[in-house]
């Protein structure tokens, strides 16, 4: 396999990890806002404990996606950052507010009104940011970003302010909330709390299903070539089958309170959705003007990048394993 394909693959792997780990941290913020009932404060505390030790490490996956993109495929980064200047800027504001508010809330020495205000900022930013992240990916997939001689044609608004990207944004939010609720069932031994999040996971799962359908319907007009990939390729139906299997498995195990299974199924479902999108779009990074090959950096850079990613992974995965073993083995 060529170095550019490996680098592009690594980028999708990093994006997958960001969705599975960082995404769930955003989802936690959603459930912080919707904490309700007699156990509302317990729910909030559980969410904070679950996110606290890991969110900064999880967040670095996003940075990794960005650096692989600008090192391995510089014109693609330039094109995306130019055409999507506005939604990316808005997303960054969300990133800043979410992280800062969460930390300020955790580390403030006195418990008072300020805490509640930070909570609010944290959870609202946790809703806002994933929508913009999804919207960005939707715009990239839509084919509406036109690059001519390295210049962006077609304006800075039309490509993303459209039904399809907006639907993808909502879909991303629903997926993250779903993941978070499923993971949270495993963060506690208190069965009442587990049940709270089980209910939330089931509800979010239904919303995910509805939005998936909406995104699919809109893709006909909103992202025609991705739609074509998702319906006409040889791999399309096996992929849909596997995704559906995961989704049903997640529901079934939630229903049966087999939370460990539910976690793997939910994660599998999200990962497969991402990979389905990536495959449908292959070999384009940005439909329809930038491909993996046309944007690839010189060979020397890509080879070095792949080697660095490989060595980095050797360092990274044991460290992550250690982190999660300390905090996530309940």
């Amino acid at each position: 396999m060529s170095a550019e394909l490996l680098a592009a693959g690594a980028m999708i792997v990093a994006l997958t990890f960001y969705a599975l780990l960082g995404g769930a941290d955003y989802g936690g913020g959603v459930w912080d806002l919707f904490a309700a009932g007699e156990r509302a404060s317990k729910q909030r505390a559980l969410i904070a404990d679950a996110i606290g030790p890991v969110w900064e490490a999880n967040h670095v996956w996003l940075i990794l996606v960005v650096v692989i993109l600008f090192t391995g495929f510089p014109p693609a980064f330039a094109g995306i950052a130019t055409a999507l200047h506005i939604p990316l800027t808005l997303m960054l504001i969300g990133v800043v507010l979410r992280g800062a508010a969460f930390t300020f809330r955790t580390y403030d020495v006195q418990r008072d009104d300020a805490q509640r205000r930070w909570s609010y900022v944290f959870s609202v930013a946790s809703i806002f940011t994933p929508i913009l992240l999804g919207l960005t990916l939707g715009a990239i997939a839509s084919g509406a970003i036109k690059i001519e001689n390295g210049q962006v044609a077609g304006g800075f608004v039309r490509s993303w302010l459209a039904p399809f990207p907006l639907a993808v944004g909502c879909f991303a939010l629903a997926l993250f909330a779903f993941l978070a609720a499923v993971y949270l069932t495993l963060e506690t031994n208190d069965t009442a709390l587990q049940d709270d999040f089980r209910k939330r996971a089931l509800a979010a799962g239904v919303v995910v299903g509805g939005l998936a359908l909406l995104v699919f319907l809109l893709s006909g007009a909103g992202a025609p070539s991705v739609r074509a990939g998702l319906t006409r390729s040889v791999w399309a139906w096996p992929l849909h089958a596997a995704t559906a299997l995961c989704a049903v498995g997640a529901f079934w195990s939630l229903w049966r309170r087999a939370y460990r299974w539910a976690r793997w199924c939910a994660a599998g479902q999200v990962a497969l959705i991402l990979w389905g999108w990536a495959l449908a779009q292959f070999p384009y990074i940005v439909e329809p003007d930038i491909t993996i090959h046309s944007a690839a950096a010189p060979h020397a850079t890509l080879r070095l990048l792949v080697v660095a990613l490989g060595l980095g992974a050797l360092l990274l995965f044991p460290s992550f394993y250690y982190l999660f073993r300390i905090f996530k083995s309940k």
């Binding site: 490490a57 990794l64 692989i68 990613l309 992550f320 982190l323």
Partner: peptide, 28 residues
Amino acid sequence: MSYAGAIIGMPFSLEGFAFFTEAIFLGI
């Protein structure tokens, strides 16, 4: 970035891994 990304992206990528170790062990 379009011009320099391929030349100077490398230290940023390595920095990415330094961030990972920093954030992971800070959490711990």
